[in-house]
Design a protein around this nucleic acid. Sequence first.
RNA 1: GGGCCCAUAGCUCAAUUGGUUAGAGCCGCCGGCUCAUAACCGGCUCGUUGCUGGUUCGAGUCCAGCUGGGCCUACCA
Length: 682
Amino acid sequence: MTEPFYVTTPIYYVNDKPHIGHAYSTVAADVLARYARLRGRPTRFLTGTDEHGQKIEEKATSLGEAPQAFVDRMSPPFEEAFRELDCSFDDYIRTTEKRHEEKVQELWRILEEKGDIYLGEYEGWYSVADEAFITEHDLEQLDEATRKQVKRVKEESYFFRLSAYQEKLLAFYEANPTFVQPEGRFNEVKSFVKAGLRDLSISRTSFRWGVPVPGNDAHVMYVWLDALTNYISALGGPAKEGEAPLFDRFWPPGADVVHIVGKDILRFHAIYWPAFLLSAGIEPPGQVWAHGWLTINGEKMSKRLGNFIPPGPLVEAFGADVVRYYLMREVGFGQDGDFAHANVLARYNGELANGLGNLLNRMVASIVKRSLGGVVPEPGPEEEIDRELVATAERCAKQAAAHLDAVAPHRALDATWELVSAANRYVDRTEPWALAKDEAKKERLARVAYSVLEALRWLSVMIAPFMPKKADALRTQLGLEALSPSEGEDRWPASWGGLPAGTKTAPGTPLFPRIDKKDEKAILEKLGVGAEGVVAEGDGAGDEGAKKDAAGKKAKSKKKGDAGKKGASADGDGYLAFDDFLKVDLRVGLVKEAEAIEKSDKLIRLQVDLGEEKPRQVLAGIREHYAPEELVGKRVVVVANLKPRKIFGHESQGMVLAASDDAHGLSVLGMEKDIDPGTKVS
RNA sequence: GGGCCCAUAGCUCAAUUGGUUAGAGCCGCCGGCUCAUAACCGGCUCGUUGCUGGUUCGAGUCCAGCUGGGCCUACCA
């Protein structure tokens, strides 16, 4: 495959410091880039930072800094973090760079020439946090922190005629059935487009920190038009013919482009971006890959929890390669996953140290060193078992490549470790230590050792996209040069026997020294992970290590437990255990306020005093039977430990009990006496 | 409310698109080996494939309904 390959990460908004989520996207892109280079493809890998927008302007101002000074300070830590993780980006673009701003303006002019930009007026709510205009309805859904940053605005705005692209986009999707991955996300995109597209406001007058609109300095560009353009501005395009070699080479047609994005920004990449490009007469990218979210030890990353993990300390504790390996191995690409420290350690010891590291060590530092003078032997005749190992290696290498081609890094590692395991098995079966004791079996020993060394050589290439340093360290021990991919040369292992006999091996320290219990504790403490996050042993305690798992399992096992009980009840039981009943926290509630939810026929929003600090907001679908006024002052029974849930955009923190039949309609459960709010019902 | 996706062993996931007895890794238990990083290898336990029906010679896979979960979206398909 020689088609040029261009892979990008999102450009990261410099409002935050780099965390493991940023690392994840960038490492994934890096794995693809390194793999493409190994295959000899011309490869371009871009990452960078997004630096414009109102949020940046306000934050800088609040710190008494100029926006430019602020972003100049905030951007480098991202670049450093990615370098620490050995991400091999060819370019690092910042949207405040001149080369970018010029290209954005150029794109604007093209869209304008095509008649897809017009000046209009926007009136409505604007969310500073989201840098977007929002509807009345959106407003109600926002959390408190965000809502504080919402402003009523009425301003002149330029619009992009997105509405004109609905059919064109759908046709484009039809013609490019793998444009968005995973497939489920593509369906979401399609149904969003089918629902109808409104013209997109693409300029602002309310702040200054952005790329000025050509010909109208009162406006700066909408941050997404600005940001998305980075993918081509970094290639020097769009440009006149012959003027931008990178663009000509790495943008379609003729090049394969993959945008790696988080699922949160999929819409911008899968709808707005191709629409802009279609308007400009530029071919859209080949694929937008939306990956999932990482939780940390089962918990959502959030500012509130303050559990953003910066990659630095992890790299320090485990090394970049191990962090990369874990991120790519643990999480099915495209799915949500969990970064659990205990699992890092489990995979490290189980797969890296015991699996691959030990294979290398037992062969190079022991058998070859002691019995073969530390030199790759001239292999003797091949036997059936040797041929089997070759066949396995060929199959695994092929599969790993296919999985990487399909952007399934976790599966590629799966296939790779199948070879690790086969090689360990081969060593056990052929017993080179026994062969070494018998002079007559020297030739056989040579073949066995050679087979394993060659398998290790293959592995050194197969792990290289994921663990570049370890790949080279492995090769060093085999007496081989570091990998140095070059365009047009496919280095992916395909033919057996490439390791030259006579090569001097260089046994060194174990590739992945085992981390024992004591070290584990020290590492986790240093990383500030609580002891409960430690346990890697699978005696059930390990489950608690990952809290999400614990929660998930709880729900799951409960479900199963219930099913089991139902099974039992089929025998005529049918009773609820008293303990189970106690799980339901029923409380007396006093209705303080009640108001109908406008857009709903059924829902009433209640503020119910449960004897807590603040009344709870509870939604009840009883409007057909009660007017809001008649509920105020009533005592009701509330299920107080129901999981909060959003209904119609309003959070409901409980449930009001009621019963209904055809004859009487619906009746809310009340109290005959004025029991204090908050009293437990039992 | 509408839509999309999902549900397989204690955990993480497979199952060649409807085809033999539903597999692998981790964990656990037992055994073997000893070159190796308390590593490695072998074996074993655990499944009504969420539930109920249907189509079929044959269903984890297709269809309908239900339950549970995730996501998208909003009075609109």
